[in-house]
Amino acid sequence: MEFGNSGSLREDGIHLDMDRLKKGEVNLGTSIMAVTFKDGVILGADSRTTTGAYIANRVTDKLTQVHDTIWCCRSGSAADTQAVADIVKYQLELFAMRNGKPPTTQTAGAIFQEICYDNKDRLSAGLIIAGWDERHGGQVYSIPLGGSLHKQPYSIGGSGSTYIYGYCDANWREGMEEADAVDFVKGALKEAIKWDGSSGGVIRMVVLTAEGADRHLYLPDTDYKVRHV
């Protein structure tokens, strides 16, 4: 276990932990977001995965399905977030079979939180859970580093998100049409990719509505203008 000494408590009692990853660990230095709109919810992410300065994968899929219409955006350690998503996916499948009905987004959020909180000292995972269910419509939950659970109308996360707080606050509206919401997510992620060195590559989205899940892909080659399938 080779952690830096940045996790230790300083003389003045201030705890600084800037470097949570092990040396050489694959990091999703990331821009992720999820946004509710009129008919449901949209998840969006860039596609850059790094090990330090090296781009380990330029077309990563950070949007992970954990149930039919419940997905999550992963940021932090690739290994940790994949492992957590795998466990939750299993739990939700079991839930659906046992109870004869699909889990709600909040059930998924609760299971994610349990894992993230119980293992907070060992994980570096910043997750955004977004889902659509008949009872609650589109919902967004965010689980930041400590393992707390927050219900939000929209959420942004990852290193790139710091650059787009102003953009999102100025441009997000309640009850947007699907096309407007897609444009909003794309506009925000374009800015995040532009300013954040650890974000880049393509823009991926998943639109969740009563109709199910619909994937979008936008490439930098066409300035993210054209939707590729």
Binding site: T36, G40, T104, G109, A110, R135, G137, G138, Q139, K151
Partner: peptide
Amino acid sequence: AAPVDGEVGSGPSCGAGGKV
């Protein structure tokens, strides 16, 4: 909406789109 134990705050009153 079914309440969630252990959620921070009561959550937004807006933004739940696409209910049946």
